[in-house]
């Protein structure tokens, strides 16, 4: 038991995890473009469902390796952080010296976020014509009221707007404007504008509807990573 604990407490273990992740990421970055058609749906489906449907372990093994490695890395992080907080906190004289542990906890939350997204996330792309209503989920629907597009002198889109009406359970909700990088939040869903097509014959908008239960946890992890990173620098400014 002690040997296992020492293994997970060791900085050398963390180091070899970093080596492992670097190798796996390198492999993945080459494998992905090499099997583009196979991996084409990976971003549209929650990861665990995509993996179970995709099969072909010979091409996806590195993702399983990454998940397994991250699981062990989470254990390593948890043990290291626990040990540091339980036995070393008395010797810590500044908050900056806690920063590696804050980063560790941040990594754990980011991993939790990815786990929730990979298992329970939902993404749906809707191509809606003006005046059309499309069902999103659980009785909720979206109607595209109008579309506006702004082009520059060279004909590139510099801004656009899709006006939407949200209805839920037969009740018609308010009309709201959706613009690129300015999402709407309706219930537990996020609504994102991907593109619009303004045409004399009938305008349309491509809209992404998503529900991502992992995003708040990943964000919390990201904030902790930032705080820990800042402290990490402060702690090492002199050495």
């Amino acid at each position: 038991m002690k040997a296992i604990l020492n293994f997970f407490l060791s900085i050398r273990t963390a180091y070899w995890f970093f080596v492992f992740f670097a190798v796996i990421m390198l492999w993945g970055s080459i494998a992905l473009p090499g099997n583009l058609a196979f991996f084409s749906g990976i971003d549209d489906t929650p990861l665990f469902r995509w993996l179970s449907e995709a099969g072909n372990i010979g091409t996806t093994w590195w993702i399983y390796g990454l998940i397994a490695g991250l699981g062990l890395f989470a254990l390593n992080t948890l043990v290291c952080t626990g040990e540091a907080l339980l036995f070393r906190v008395g010797r810590i004289n500044t908050i900056a010296r806690l920063s590696p542990q804050i980063m560790h906890v941040g990594v754990l939350f980011v991993m939790l976020g990815h786990l929730l997204t990979a298992s329970m996330g939902m993404k749906l792309d809707l191509d809606i014509r003006q005046g059309e209503t499309k069902l999103v989920a659980e009785g909720a629907a979206i109607t595209l009221v109008s579309v506006r597009e702004e082009l520059d002198a060279n004909g590139y889109a510099v801004d656009w707007e899709a006006v939407l009406r949200w209805s839920n359970g037969g009740k018609t909700g308010e009309v709201r404007s959706l613009r690129p990088a300015h999402p709407l939040h309706m219930g537990s869903y996020g609504i994102f504008s991907k593109s619009v097509n303004v045409d004399n014959k009938g305008s349309s908008a491509l809209i992404r509807v998503s529900r991502d239960p992992g995003a708040p946890w990943a964000l919390l992890g990201g904030v902790l990573l930032c705080l820990g990173g800042a402290g990490f620098v402060l702690a090492r400014m002199n050495g």
Binding site: L32, K123, P180, A181, H182, F192, D212, A218, G222, L225
Partner: peptide, 27 residues
Amino acid sequence: TIALVAGSVWFFIAYGMYWLWTSRELF
């Protein structure tokens, strides 16, 4: 690290996801 977190927030706001399986993200 802070840049990656800010990039994830931007990507989520813009496209509704904070991670993509592409060689760029992996690298």
